[in-house]
Design a protein around this nucleic acid. Structure first.
Lengths: 161, 161
DNA sequence: AATCTTATTGCGAGTATTCGCAATAGAGAG
DNA sequence: CTCTCTATTGCGAATACTCGCAATAAGATT
């Protein structure tokens, strides 16, 4: 990938060391289209070399998040996914029914950003903002299916699809 | 605690079974002032009985979150904290420097709520919204220099921001 | 009160992620 | 190019949480 190089340089300039592991992880992340798990990055990098450890993947991904190259998203299912932040900041809308992650326009958060700064002196990191909820599809299907009738002990623990 | 009782009844009416474990967990959660971890609830309940298992704590807390009695907040440090939702919905502002959790007014999210529904057909679950960032104190101290604020951050990683 | 159904619990094993520490290897200085 | 300093890696153990399954017990029914 082309502009990985630029980012790798930027890492070095900031005083971080550029190791082959880091390069490969950055490239693997940049190659992946959407959101990937640490395990997927691991598998990807493992194709190229055996000299890589899962802990290094996690540490590097954390570093990338801290430095702003990537964003991390903790899904409720017990794992996290990462994505490059190259295409600019965006919000993550996580559907708690189907698990899909929708990227929403970052500017939607502008009002809340300003309010938080004004009223709480809090400087939010909105690149890391993820919002749990129901996507349009799941909202539609759950409304069509059963309209809030006598739901006894059946539907409660069911989640996902 | 007083209105635990009401909630326990509500659970039963919704078709869930009310077990001593659940009662004790609910009471322990309601007793705790702010945000507590599953482990803290476990310790609390354990004082009263040995008949409790950590997995049950997690399952019950999840149930409470699903039914709206509690809210869950995944902290980046690898654990989650829970709080009752009795005092109404609110946003969680999580400071990534000192780890503090500030409860902010729920209405701040109204604009984004509306925009998400209009533009994406997405129905956000804003009781579960947590926003990562820097609190006023940490923002001030990182600008001013060094203060008593920073607690867990290590060496270099915090300078970069 | 005895019975029945099945939701819930406890347990132990499994998963995703983090941590501590010794060994390795970047990057600047000589 | 070599040396030095220390950031980074790999490893295995620890942590926080989840899951599958058999045993238990809530709540409805009789």
């Amino acid at each position: 990938m082309s502009h990985c190089h630029i980012y790798i340089q930027s890492l070095r300039q900031r005083g971080y060391r550029v190791t082959p592991q880091r390069e490969m992880i950055i490239e693997a992340l940049a190659d992946s289209a959407g959101h990937v798990t640490a395990e997927e990055i691991f598998a990807q990098v493992r194709k190229r070399t055996r000299a890589i450890n899962l802990a290094t993947i996690y540490r590097t991904l954390d570093l990338l998040v801290e430095t702003g190259f990537a964003s991390r998203l903790d899904l409720r299912d017990g794992y996290a996914v990462y994505a490059t932040a190259q295409h600019g900041p965006h919000l993550h809308l996580v559907c708690k029914a189907c698990g899909r992650v929708i990227d929403a326009d970052h500017s939607l958060a502008t009002p809340i950003d300003e309010l938080l700064r004004e009223q709480y002196g809090f400087s939010p990191d909105l690149q890391h903002l993820s919002i749990l909820g129901l996507c349009a599809d799941c909202l539609g299907s759950s409304a069509a299916g059963s309209s809030a009738a006598g739901s006894s002990a059946e539907g409660k623990s069911e989640e996902g699809e």
